[in-house]
Amino acid sequence: MRQIVLDTETTGLNPRTGDRIIEVGCVELLNRKLTGNNFHRYINPERDSDEAALAVHGLTTEFLSDKPKFHEIAHELREFVQGAEIIIHNAPFDLGFLNHEFQRVGLPSFIDHCSGLIDTLVHAKELHPGKRNSLDALCDRYGVSNAHRKLHGALLDSELLADVYLSMTRGQNMLSMDVEVEESAGSQLADAGPLGEILVIASSADELSEHDKVLAALDKGVKGECLWRKYSPQA
């Protein structure tokens, strides 16, 4: 299975008000293994970044002035992601910009070229409800080092997210270890001889009496017969 972990950096928050993509970073996973076949482009947005956005990514107008415009890299990006499952953290944000840019150059929406989508923010919220689930927070939670992340960068963030995603979904590094452990355990079990007789210890009369008192209290609480009575073997 081919998957692409993707991130973008932008001039601001809203493509509908003229904000544009200034960086795209993609990391390829093939059968849950990093291949090193990545895609990374800086893009000239033909406008300045908002001050708040510039503080996040640090990509100045001067730095981007000689970079290709989006229409010059659009087909290359489309070919790279064609048919792959896309993995994005907070997917609506990046897809909003990518779809907008693709439509500007007369291409179908970005997601139409992909086989599926995984939003790791949605997945993280399901796994860790009520907790912080930013990329930095997930790196801390899963032991992914982000000490070198001083500013946001599309390729760096994609690389970090790839490690986080593999950890969240029991990545390939643990898979090989699990197989070795299971094989080792199976070998030890085979050498241990037949299992002993399974002992079934029945409740004593005193224990049954105490249990009945608990059920009586439950009956009183529900003003009738509690569920334990209905499903009791004695019933």
Rank of each mutant, 00 (worst) to 15 (best):
V5Q: 11
L6Y: 01
D7E: 09
T8C: 04
T8S: 01
T8E: 01
T10Q: 00
G12D: 06
R16E: 14
G18P: 14
D19N: 11
R20H: 02
I22N: 03
V24G: 03
G25M: 07
G25R: 03
G25T: 02
C26E: 05
E28V: 05
L29C: 02
K33P: 00
T35W: 11
T35S: 02
F39E: 07
R41S: 03
P45Q: 05
P45N: 12
E46N: 10
L54Y: 14
L54G: 06
L54D: 02
H57Q: 04
T60D: 06
L64R: 04
K67R: 07
P68Y: 11
K69L: 10
H71K: 15
I73K: 07
L77S: 06
F80H: 04
A84I: 01
A84T: 07
A84W: 02
E85N: 09
E85D: 08
I86V: 15
H89V: 05
H89Q: 15
N90Y: 13
G96W: 06
F97E: 05
N99Q: 07
N99E: 15
N99A: 06
H100T: 06
H100G: 04
E101L: 10
Q103C: 05
Q103E: 15
R104S: 15
V105R: 12
G106Q: 07
L107D: 05
P108F: 10
S109I: 01
S109G: 06
F110G: 11
I111T: 09
H113V: 06
S115I: 02
G116C: 05
I118K: 09
V122M: 07
A124E: 12
A124N: 13
A124I: 03
G130I: 14
G130W: 12
G130Q: 10
K131S: 14
N133E: 03
L135A: 08
D136G: 10
L138H: 09
C139A: 08
D140N: 11
L151N: 11
L151S: 08
L151R: 15
L151D: 07
L151Q: 12
A154T: 01
L155V: 02
L156K: 06
D157M: 04
A162K: 04
L166Q: 15
S167A: 15
M168K: 14
M168C: 13
T169M: 11
Q172K: 04
L175W: 03
M177Q: 12
E180F: 01
V181P: 02
V181E: 15
E183D: 13
S184L: 14
S184D: 05
G186W: 05
S187Q: 03
S187P: 00
S187E: 12
Q188P: 00
Q188R: 09
L189P: 03
A190H: 12
A190P: 00
A192P: 09
G193M: 11
G196T: 04
I198S: 08
L199A: 12
S204K: 01
S204C: 00
A205V: 13
A205R: 14
A205I: 09
D206N: 08
L208S: 05
L208R: 15
E210F: 06
A216F: 02
A217K: 15
A217G: 14
L218T: 00
L218Q: 09
K220Q: 14
E225K: 13
C226M: 03
W228A: 13
Y231P: 01
S232E: 02
S232K: 10
Q234Y: 01
A235F: 03
